[in-house]
Simulated scan of single mutants.
Amino acid sequence: MPDWLPEGVSALGLAVLLFTVFVSGVVYGFAGFGAALIFVPVAARVVPLEIAIAAFTVSAVSSLVTVVPKAWRDVDRAAVTWQILCACISASLGILVLRTVDVTWLKWAMVALIALTLVALVAGWRLRAAPTRVTQGVVGLLAGFCGGALGLLGPPVVIFQLAGPDGAARSRAMTLVFLTVTSVLILPLMALQGVVTWAVLPLGLLLTLPYGAGTWVGHLLFRPEFERLYRGAAYSLIALAVVLGLPVFD
């Protein structure tokens, strides 16, 4: 393999990463969530967890072009900006946890959080909290910490957003904008703590191509009337990622 890729990445491993990030992008494009829930646990079987999170965060830049421009027109801009700000505040603490806590514990925490999120979504459980600035800020803080520590910005925001009064189109737009913009903004925070390095950057940039293509395809597939079908597909892929990401297979 090229020497600019992280050490230990085989041809098969790279193929798995490229395919998985494309599938993650498709799910993200039509469902508005689920990309990290699918990619990170699978990628962590190919590369170290820290590299998987950093590379995926870099690849999220492509979503700024493929899905955010249209989604931005449908969001509550004040609310999503406030949540993004709060997430960036707590992300640094999460990144510190990623750097210092034993990777096996992090993998178990990641799988547990994904599984809990999946169960909550399938069962129809929702965070019944009024969408005030306080609750939006708390959700943003939780998302930022989970994103920094486990690469999973989505769970708190998705569960909170689906509980609100927004329809499928606005809810999808809110999560798309939050997850994409926050991922991009925490890149400098990851770089400052040494998670995003020159060794990781080429892999992340390579992943932007299939991820961007996947989000574009998913965006084209999205139809509000097929919301249940999209969610069912996303749930199935997330469940598969949970199984593949179990540390017992390490």
Results as ranks from 00 to 15, higher is better:
V97S: 06
A78G: 12
I84K: 01
A109S: 15
W82G: 01
R99C: 10
I84C: 03
L93W: 11
D102V: 09
T81F: 00
T104I: 14
V103W: 03
S90R: 06
T100P: 04
L93V: 12
V75E: 00
I89S: 07
A109C: 15
M110D: 02
I95C: 07
T104S: 13
V103M: 09
S90V: 11
V103R: 11
C88I: 12
Q83W: 01
L96D: 14
T104N: 14
A78R: 15
T81P: 00
L93G: 15
R73P: 04
R73E: 13
I89D: 06
S92G: 12
T100W: 10
R99H: 08
A91N: 08
I95N: 05
L106A: 06
W108C: 06
A87W: 02
I95R: 08
K107F: 02
A78F: 07
S92Y: 13
M110F: 03
M110Q: 07
W105Y: 14
A87D: 04
R77L: 03
D76A: 11
I95Y: 03
M110P: 01
D76S: 13
A79L: 13
R77W: 00
C88N: 11
T104C: 08
D102T: 08
V75Y: 00
L96N: 11
S92N: 11
I89A: 12
C86P: 06
I89C: 08
W82V: 01
T100G: 05
A79K: 11
L85H: 00
R99N: 15
W82H: 13
C86V: 08
C86N: 08
V103E: 15
I89F: 10
A91T: 11
D102Y: 04
T81A: 14
D102H: 14
T81G: 10
V80E: 01
A87H: 04
W82R: 13
V80H: 00
D102I: 04
D76Y: 04
D102C: 08
S92E: 12
D102G: 04
K107G: 09
A79E: 12
G94Q: 07
M110C: 05
R99F: 02
V80I: 15
W108N: 06
Q83E: 14
G94N: 06
A78W: 06
I89Y: 05
W105R: 12
W105G: 14
R73F: 03
Q83Y: 01
C86M: 15
V103G: 08
V75T: 11
I95H: 07
L96M: 13
D74Q: 15
R73D: 12
T100M: 10
C88S: 10
A78H: 10
